[in-house]
Amino acid sequence: KPCPVDFEFMNYTIITSRCKGPRYPANLCCGAFKDFACPYNDELNDLSNECSSTMFSYINLYGNYPPGLFSSLCRDDKIGLICPAL
């Protein structure tokens, strides 16, 4: 199932300006990641589409991040990464 969100042409500087190597501080990187991704949490959590795979492809492409950076760095609650309230 295709992703209804077009992640190809989005502005990723919200992440790339704050999450930088070589240290990739978790508070900055995970905060930036959530700021970018939380508006699309419903689409990303739907694992029957390609949204999360596509989004991470572009995040890693534009940020030149090592594979698995965010999944290894970011932990909140047992349910997942908590998004700020709207």
Binding site: N45, L47, S52, G80, C83
Partner: peptide, 20 residues
Amino acid sequence: SNQRYISYGALSKNNVPCSR
């Protein structure tokens, strides 16, 4: 209230560049 979150299932897609 509805707490929004990014599931670890979605986050795990960061691990696999070429999932199949």
